[in-house]
Amino acid sequence: MGTITFLLVLSFLVFFHELGHFTAAKFFGVKVEVFSIGFGKRLYAKQWKGTVWQFALIPLGGYVKMKGQDDTKPTLREQGDDSYNNKAPWQRIVILFAGPFANFILAAILYFIIAIAGANSLSPTIGNIQANSPAQKAGIQKGDVILRINNNDIKTWEELGKYIKDSKGALKFHIKRDNKILVKIIKPYISDAQNMFKENIKKRMIGISPAPKIVTIYHDPISAVSYAWDKTVESSKMIFLGVQKLIQGIIPSSEIGGVITIGKVISDASQSSIIALLAITALISVNLGVLNLLPIPALDGGHIMFNIYEIIARRKPSDQVFMFLTLAGWVILASLMLLGIYNDINRLFK
């Protein structure tokens, strides 16, 4: 069942990504010859409105084949107003960007649904308290629920941590304990900590950790839009930073995951709840959008860079350069895929 869920989720994400390219291409009058979910041998195909819609044997991606554009033949030239290579560079950029953009839109839609259905988060309930910390000195106890800091309502542990980190000076905590509301003045201190990439940082803290208690937050449609926007932007920033840290060597290459890891994550989420499955699907959709914008020649981002070069230089890259960089891009992608699979196998044996 987990494998089926994985394939359905991946096919759905690929379809939405390619639908972005397809929609933009049709808008500019480019003929789309093939819309494929999967690679390799064709399993099923149907022609509709000038496009062959097909499912292929290897369901680990997909593509739209436009007239005048073929990554396997990067120097291809085809004549006609409906040819991709005869469109202005800015139009090609829009067509290329539309795929990743569709993934961001899909993620926002999924986050919106999660917000309406009920988003699960850690409750702002105190678990452990560090000895001699500002929280202990102020009389904070295990099980206390933080309702408000200064004039800001606190609904989740994430909000609590963010507000303390970004604050200045002493803070007024409104705390619920045994059905009573208490007010405590706490001045955070600067302490050593680690961020999500395990880098050593300094941040404002009061010396508390959360209790293992989940709270479900239901949003109205207006606040759900804000939630969806914030989560999509936050996820995008996290993935961009992750790529940056990987290039810098801060994140080891052993952390790269392949299709096995993705499949396991999706399978585990599907067994947990529909909300968890929607959340991981949204995150993978953002991941797909961000990674496709990287300036690697075989990806959308690489082709966007070629077109930006054409706008600036007022000429296309030479066929030899275009061919060399495209092949180099495919080598990079294949290497990353093999590394991900190698790491997946290592994790399975461990």
Rank of each mutant, 00 (worst) to 15 (best):
1 M>W: 06
4 I>Q: 02
4 I>A: 10
6 F>V: 13
8 L>T: 07
9 V>G: 03
12 F>D: 06
14 V>W: 06
15 F>R: 05
16 F>D: 00
19 L>S: 14
20 G>A: 09
22 F>W: 12
22 F>D: 07
27 F>A: 13
27 F>T: 13
28 F>M: 11
35 F>D: 05
39 F>G: 10
44 Y>L: 15
50 G>R: 09
51 T>G: 11
52 V>M: 06
55 F>I: 15
55 F>V: 14
56 A>T: 06
56 A>V: 08
58 I>A: 13
66 M>L: 14
67 K>L: 15
67 K>G: 14
69 Q>N: 05
69 Q>A: 13
71 D>M: 10
74 P>M: 08
91 Q>W: 05
97 F>M: 10
97 F>Y: 06
98 A>G: 05
107 A>I: 07
112 F>P: 09
113 I>G: 00
114 I>G: 01
118 G>C: 08
124 P>A: 13
127 G>D: 12
127 G>P: 11
128 N>C: 00
128 N>D: 10
132 N>L: 13
139 G>L: 06
140 I>D: 00
145 V>S: 04
146 I>T: 04
147 L>E: 14
151 N>Q: 15
152 N>I: 10
153 D>A: 08
154 I>P: 00
156 T>E: 02
161 G>K: 12
161 G>E: 14
164 I>W: 02
170 A>Y: 03
171 L>P: 10
172 K>G: 04
172 K>N: 13
173 F>H: 04
173 F>Y: 12
174 H>F: 14
179 N>K: 11
183 V>D: 12
183 V>P: 00
183 V>A: 05
184 K>H: 11
187 K>G: 00
192 D>I: 11
194 Q>D: 02
197 F>N: 00
200 N>E: 11
201 I>C: 13
202 K>D: 06
204 R>F: 13
205 M>Q: 15
205 M>N: 09
209 S>D: 06
209 S>H: 03
210 P>S: 13
220 D>Y: 11
220 D>H: 12
220 D>K: 11
222 I>W: 14
228 A>W: 02
230 D>R: 10
230 D>L: 12
231 K>S: 15
233 V>R: 00
233 V>A: 07
240 F>Y: 15
242 G>C: 10
246 L>R: 03
254 S>H: 11
255 E>C: 06
264 K>H: 13
265 V>Y: 07
267 S>G: 08
270 S>D: 01
270 S>T: 01
270 S>M: 01
271 Q>V: 02
273 S>W: 05
288 L>R: 05
292 N>L: 03
296 I>F: 02
297 P>I: 01
302 G>W: 05
302 G>N: 08
307 N>M: 14
309 Y>S: 11
311 I>S: 00
312 I>V: 15
320 Q>F: 10
324 F>D: 01
325 L>T: 15
328 A>C: 15
329 G>C: 01
334 A>C: 10
337 M>L: 12
342 Y>S: 11
345 I>Q: 01
